[in-house]
């Protein structure tokens, strides 16, 4: 499986390189360092959300409420800032609120046993509805936000904006969590075979709860970053973005059936989508073609997964095993 995974990630890498080459041929400026850094920075919110979504999908669930969570925490962050709360409190509060919203999803899945797609389809509408109730549908605009609030994600440190650094930090932290901690291992075990996980002493529901909490916390973090970067907060912020997040996971080889996938693939999936969104408009590809291309990429990715994971037939012939023993 490791060989298959690397070859899968490799395939995606070739596709990204080929696509970049085609774009660079038409528009050489795209591959200048600053342009690539821009593309990365534009894709940073997607990457952070995809890490959370990946964990949820690994445990055989799905979180459709990420974009709504982002919008709600972003709005709360903007309102807190408007009320004069210092930024050092606003950001932890956004993360905590996101985590709580994720826990609501997680509790409904764990304790009530509702399928995650139903839970998050519901909370996705509820969370947006809460924004409307809080604001009566009014926008929080740039002039209502403090300068510090707006400046942080754009602040350049060592040549990259803080937004990019946050994404890099999240990727690094979760690369470690997924491969080097007991929690990370449990996500794979729960999604790989929930029955076996129970017998091995892992609480499947609690692990799924943890996944939703992480996804919510990361959405809360992005909520602040998004609202401050675009300097506007309203009910429909990041509307429909949850589909991009799920799409990046699927393109990145995270199996919707759970248990298969990793941070590397997920990030490659984000880069692929990020290039489509950022570069294709530059070389004059119409938005409809962009949608068609990303749609094709999703179907292709799923097809590649399905072909790779196709059962190789039942082991009835015993020759290999007895041969080895003899």
């Amino acid at each position: 499986m490791k060989a298959a995974l690397t070859s899968r990630d490799a395939l995606l890498t070739y596709a990204i390189i080929a696509m970049t080459a085609v774009i660079a041929y038409r528009f050489p400026a795209f591959i200048t360092p600053s342009s690539l850094a821009n593309t990365f920075n534009d894709t940073a919110p997607l990457m952070i959300l995809v890490i959370g979504q990946m964990i949820v999908i690994l445990t055989k669930c799905i979180d459709l409420s990420v974009a709504a969570t982002l919008a709600l925490t972003g709005m709360v962050a903007a309102l807190m800032d408007g009320a004069g709360v210092p930024l050092a409190l606003v950001i932890p509060a956004a993360i905590a609120l996101g985590a709580m919203l994720g826990m609501v999803n997680g509790l409904l899945v764990w304790r009530v046993g509702i399928p995650s797609i139903v839970v998050t389809l519901g909370t996705m509408t509820i969370y947006r509805g809460v924004i409307f109730l809080m604001t009566d549908g009014k926008w929080v605009n740039a002039h209502e936000m403090s300068d510090a609030f707006k400046a942080l994600p754009r602040l350049h440190v060592l040549g990259l904006p803080v937004m990019s650094w946050v994404a890099i930090a999240v990727i690094a932290i979760f690369a470690v969590i997924m491969t080097r901690t007991v929690l990370g291992r449990s996500f794979y075990a729960v999604g790989g075979n929930p029955h076996a996980a129970v017998y091995a002493g892992i609480d499947v529901g609690r692990t799924q709860f943890a996944a939703f909490s992480i996804s919510g916390a990361l959405a809360g973090l992005v909520g602040y970053l998004w609202v401050s970067r675009y300097a506007v907060a309203y009910v429909d912020v990041a509307g429909g973005f949850e589909l991009d997040v799920v799409a990046a996971c699927v393109i990145g080889g995270i199996s919707i059936a759970g248990g298969i996938g990793g941070v590397r693939g997920a990030i490659l999936g984000c880069i692929f989508l990020g290039i489509i969104k950022n570069a294709l408009p530059v070389i004059g590809v119409s938005p409809f073609w962009q949608m068609a291309i990303s749609g094709t990429a999703i179907v292709l990715a799923v097809a590649v997964n399905a072909l790779q994971n196709r059962p190789k037939g039942r082991l009835i012939l015993k020759t290999t095993e007895t041969g080895a023993r003899a």
Binding site: R185, N193, A196, V198, I202, G259
Partner: peptide, 20 residues
């Protein structure tokens, strides 16, 4: 159904209940 977790390597399967 209740034993092996396919997709995980042998050592991760074997160590799963002993991770503590």
């Amino acid at each position: 159904r209740q034993g092996a977790i396919k997709g995980l390597p042998i050592f991760q399967n074997a160590s799963l209940p002993s991770l503590t």
